[in-house]
């Protein structure tokens, strides 16, 4: 196992913690945070591959992560605004209560 694989394992573990959290918590804010963690895990991968690329490209990974962070920030803002909208609507933020999209 080399260092790149170690990095990838770390990011997989982070991804799975985020996934497990998002799946098992009922508080919408925590679910959103779990999703943020999964995004972060992806960013870790970008940086790890950039760092250990045998044929290094100057700035690709870094640029990619910068864009990912920008999009993630937008996602967090919209997500938490959604949380507030849900709260206003049903007076709590339990995700399993938000089932109005049921077909």
């Amino acid at each position: 196992m080399n260092t790149l694989q170690l990095c990838l394992l770390i990011s997989s573990a982070l991804f799975c913690i985020g996934l497990a959290g998002a799946l098992s918590r009922t508080n919408t804010i925590l679910v959103l945070l779990g999703i943020e963690l999964m995004l972060n895990a992806a960013n870790l991968n970008f940086i790890a591959f950039w760092r250990f690329n045998p044929a290094p490209l100057p700035a690709t990974g870094v640029i990619f992560v910068i864009f990912a962070i920008a999009v993630a920030a937008a996602e967090a803002a919209v997500g938490l605004a959604l949380v507030i909208a849900i709260y206003r609507h049903q007076q709590n933020i339990r995700l399993q209560d938000a089932t109005r999209l049921k077909g």
Partner: peptide, 27 residues
């Protein structure tokens, strides 16, 4: 909670296997 952790664990296992079985070259 159990379902969530199981799903997370399954993903973790699969990802770990994938990472370890891949032959990755590093600089």
């Amino acid at each position: 909670a159990v379902a969530g952790v199981l799903a997370g664990g399954a993903t973790a296992g699969v990802l770990t296997l994938a990472v370890l079985r891949t032959n990755l070259q590093i600089a």
